[in-house]
């Protein structure tokens, strides 16, 4: 089966600092790739290069075997939108606060001439039909995130890029959204690129994992294998940072400092 997404050698620097260094990976149809790391590791930059919000300095992104173009004009732009859609941490940013859920979804369907109805779309993300006339502020955080996902899925994208999409949600709501995402990728074949700082969340929803540190992919492999037996000391450190029984923040802070020192020594 061909890959829905192939990222090849994505590289980006800001002011001479490399925030993404030759990042490559592929997403199979219905597959899910996690990109994890701390803030500043470059994971969001990768997500934004994939979706075309940032122009990479080098490297290519192709969807269904075809490189993403730069053609101007409405038709090309809409076609690019149908290839990759993005969902962010704060759904307020992607929803118009004056539009009802129904109108927001209807807008997208009309613009892309999709043969779906608002009701079908709402049903596919588990939103009750009576919420159609609600505005974003009347919804809970989980419902708002479902609307954002519905809006992204309206165009039947090949790939959905989710940047910390469940990080602001309560655990029980988070669990339901993660289950929804797994169901959607199984049913529609959409490929997921799931960016998160939470390794346990990545474990729930991804098949393959990329661990990034300072713009570099330090580990790349099967999610369960990477989390069960990490090869790189950075992955190891991230795994032992999560609060649990016997967790001591002082110890994590020491590990973190020791790791940063060892990296500096290696670079010098």
């Amino acid at each position: 089966m061909p890959d829905v997404l192939a990222a090849e050698g994505l590289t980006k620097s800001y002011k001479g600092r490399c925030v993404a260094d030759s990042v490559s990976f592929t997403v199979a149809r219905g597959g899910s790739v996690g990109v994890v790391g701390e803030s500043g590791s470059g994971k969001t930059t990768v997500a934004r290069m994939i979706s075309g919000l940032i122009e990479p300095d080098a490297g290519t992104v192709s969807v269904n075997g075809r490189a993403r173009g730069h053609d101007r004009g409405r038709a090309a732009r809409l076609r690019r939108a149908r290839e990759i859609q993005m969902v962010f941490q704060d759904p307020y940013g992607s929803l118009d606060r004056r539009l009802t859920v129904g109108n927001a979804l209807r807008d997208v369907l009309k613009r892309h001439r999709c043969g779906k109805t608002v009701a079908e779309l709402m049903d596919s993300v588990g939103l009750a039909a009576e919420l159609e006339s609600s505005r974003p502020h009347q919804l809970s955080g989980g419902q708002r995130q479902r609307v954002a996902i519905a809006k992204a899925l309206a165009v039947d994208p090949a790939v959905l890029v989710l940047d910390e999409a469940v990080s602001a949600l309560d655990v029980s709501v988070q669990a339901r959204i993660l289950a929804l995402l797994n169901e959607i990728r199984r049913d529609t074949g959409v490929g997921l690129v799931f960016v998160t700082h939470d390794l346990a969340v990545a474990a729930e929803v991804t098949d393959t994992l990329l661990v990034m540190y300072q713009g570099k992919v330090v580990e790349h492999g099967d999610t369960a294998t990477v989390l069960r037996s990490p090869e790189h000391p950075y992955t190891e450190m991230l795994l032992s940072s999560a609060p649990g029984p016997g967790w001591r923040p002082e110890q994590v802070a020491e590990l973190r400092a020791a790791f940063a020192d060892s990296q500096e020594a290696a670079d010098a």
């Binding site: 701390e38 803030s39 940072s241 923040p249 002082e250 994590v252």
Partner: peptide
């Protein structure tokens, strides 16, 4: 709002 390692650093400081 902080990632796990930064969270641990801030909490270690706070505990001290």
């Amino acid at each position: 709002a902080l990632d796990v390692t930064t969270q641990a650093e801030v909490l270690a400081v706070l505990r001290g």
